[in-house]
């Protein structure tokens, strides 16, 4: 179960793939990763949280937590943002892959792109929790309404 949950967080639909529910796995993967990809196209990125001791960075921290819900792609985007900043310090030019995942903060659509990443992360969290609810304690993976009836 732990492998399925962590795998589903890293790669949307992974748990259902292991349970041989291929259609569900594919649909989740396409919708969630597709939304994330659109966010990157809009020059969004997973922005590092502002850790402010006075409490001013709460929204930033919560946004980061939710964006990270997408797992692997979020980690890549976050790492790309950090790498981009480091390369800027050393005046090195980043490649297209890094630039794509790092977003472009001054861009007009940056906030919009970040919101796409937020929705993608949140939906993956819901899907992972739903997977757990369907299969916990040896359940057969049916929808929760079926378990209740």
């Amino acid at each position: 179960m732990a492998l399925d949950l962590i795998g589903s967080w890293l790669l949307p639909g992974f748990g259902y793939l292991r349970k041989k529910r291929y259609a569900r796995a594919l649909i989740l993967f396409i919708i969630i990763e597709g939304t994330f990809f659109l966010g990157l196209v809009l020059k969004g990125s997973v922005t590092p949280p502002i850790l402010d001791p006075s409490g001013g960075g709460v929204i930033s921290f919560l946004s980061f937590l939710i964006q990270v819900g997408n797992g692997l792609l979020s980690i890549i985007s976050f790492a790309a943002v950090l790498a981009f900043k480091k390369m800027g310090d050393f005046q090195l030019a980043p490649g297209p892959f890094l630039a794509f995942f790092a977003g472009e903060q001054p861009h007009a659509f940056f906030e919009m792109g970040g919101f796409y990443l937020l929705v993608s992360g949140a939906m993956n969290y819901f899907s992972v929790v739903n997977f757990y609810d369907r299969y916990k304690n040896g359940r057969n993976g049916c929808a929760i309404e079926a378990h209740k009836s």
Partner: peptide
């Protein structure tokens, strides 16, 4: 649409 669809997918089979 994405939010509605994912929630619908989670709730039903």
């Amino acid at each position: 649409f994405v939010v509605a669809f994912i929630l619908g997918l989670n709730d039903h089979d």
